[in-house]
Design a protein around this nucleic acid. Structure first.
Length: 413
RNA sequence: GCGAUCGUAGCUCAGCUGGUUAGAGCAUCGGUUUGUGGUACCGAGGGUCGGGGGUUCAAGUCCCCUCGAUCGCCCCA
């Protein structure tokens, strides 16, 4: 167990069935993303540190204690991406995507956060990411959320997941609501848990989704966003919910849903499950109209979400292992090269084949059987002399001789 | 960063209140069967019991430290 180097805390070697699940999630995302016209992009894994610190917010946990930041050999401070959105916005500015706006882009890959690892929470984890940049209309929010819902549907887990929806309003709303909350919580300081008292200074919105029982009465009576929504913000949210209803996406209002990152405005949502313990959010996102400006760009409305690939992987059924079509079993040296030719031929014809070239015939047949192949193709001196191969159906045990040129055809039957 | 539980072969685990050479199943390799697999039987390899220190005549078993995993807090995808 402790032979040789260990893997780094919070990293994973994903293989076997877990790798199949991972691939299944990515494949579903690729299919759904096309249906919604999202273009695939590939982003750098690291960015200048300020790309994240300026957009996500200096006081957030992510920036203040979870980033993998380092100085490169040229003395620049770089950071392994803790999420995708900030880097994509940077690309939008540096690549001049404004001219293409609104852009709909999708990507996936690793992200890094120095956190205490847990099931469904890793230091190197993997996300799917979808963003619509340059669209300030509620229809964009609707489309983006519907895409998330369809992904869950494609994965066959939509029944176990609930969409929670809230609005944080526009900046005016958010500021006045936040001020009211701080006032209110200060007034009830004594009734709050230690954790929430600590949040009061740093992240007062988060008190709203405290899990401490003693906070519940205080939180229940706290000022709600709805009382602070401007007419515009309220209208925007109404259009989003109406759009979701029209698109047939089920949702529940959660007035206490807040997001940890500073850049969110208006729509905030989470697709949550009860099946993953504390790691309940599988897809989460919202509108971030202020982000681009915090990076020094022009005002650019945008919405997006990210999904945890590991979390989704853990929820889906194990994908069917797709066995190969045939295992070629050569016997004798002359047969080896004939088998090599046959394998190449079959693969060019689009058939998945393996060659069992180790051990005696018994071993080779065992390998053929273990490979999950439907057929074994036995190539011995006798068959070769007649220009044939013996094709054996490994399930039924039936075996017949087939001319070498007809093997591909025989496999397709 | 805080609290709790756990850590024995490649994998899943057993090992009673500390007591002689640490076990099983699966997997691997070999054999029964040197041109026929998936079943069966026989056999073999593989462990400094996560690592380090301590208590004891004696430690996988008790104590401390450390690393890692899991669960919760926190945070978030």
């Amino acid at each position: 167990m402790s032979k040789g180097p260990q893997k780094i805390r919070g990293t994973q070697d994903i293989w076997g069935e877990a790798a199949d699940r991972f691939q299944a999630v990515v494949a579903a995302f690729e299919r759904v993303r096309r249906l919604y016209g999202f273009r695939r992009v590939e982003m750098p894994v690291f960015e200048a540190t300020e790309v994240f610190s300026r957009s996500i917010g200096e006081t957030t946990d992510i920036v203040s204690k979870e980033m993998y930041s380092f100085e490169d050999r040229g003395g620049d401070s770089l950071t392994l991406r803790p999420e995708f959105t900030a880097g994509i916005c940077r690309a939008y500015l540096s690549e001049g995507w404004q001219q293409l706006a609104p852009v709909r882009i999708a990507t996936h890959g690793p992200a890094f956060r120095y956190e205490r690892p847990q099931k469904g929470r890793y230091r190197q984890f993997h996300q799917l990411d979808a963003e619509i940049i340059g669209a300030g209309e509620p229809a964009a929010d609707v489309e983006l959320i519907a895409m998330g819902a369809q992904l869950l549907d494609a994965l066959g887990i939509d029944g176990r997941i609930e969409l929670k929806l809230n609005t944080l309003g526009d900046p005016a709303t958010r500021d006045s609501w936040r001020a009211a909350l701080v006032d209110y919580f200060r007034g009830h300081r004594g009734a709050l848990s230690d954790e929430s008292r600590a949040r009061l200074e740093k992240n007062p919105l988060r008190i709203l989704d405290s899990k401490e029982h003693q906070d519940f009465p205080v939180v229940d009576a706290a000022p709600v966003v709805d009382d602070f929504l401007t007419a515009e913000a309220s209208d925007f949210f109404a259009k989003v919910t109406a759009g979701l209803d029209a698109a047939g996406v089920a949702w529940t209002r959660d007035p206490r849903l807040v997001r940890g990152l500073d850049y969110y405005r208006h729509t905030a949502f989470e697709f949550v499950t009860e099946d993953l313990g504390a790691q309940s959010a599988v897809i989460a996102g919202g509108r971030y109209d202020g982000l681009m400006e915090s990076l020094g760009g022009p005002h650019t409305p945008a919405v997006g979400w990210a999904a945890g690939i590991e979390r989704l992987s853990m929820l889906i059924e194990a994908p069917q292992e797709s066995g190969i079509d045939a295992a070629v079993v050569p016997l004798g040296e002359a047969a080896e090269s004939a088998a090599g030719r046959l394998c190449a031929e079959l693969r060019r014809a689009g058939l998945a084949v393996e060659m069992a070239y180790k051990g005696n015939m018994k071993k080779r047949m065992q390998k053929a059987s273990a490979s999950g192949a439907r057929f074994a193709i036995i190539l011995g001196e006798d068959e070769l002399a007649r220009g044939e191969a013996a094709v054996k159906d490994l399930a039924s045990g039936e075996q017949r001789n087939v001319a070498l040129g007809e093997v591909a055809k025989a496999l397709r039957q």
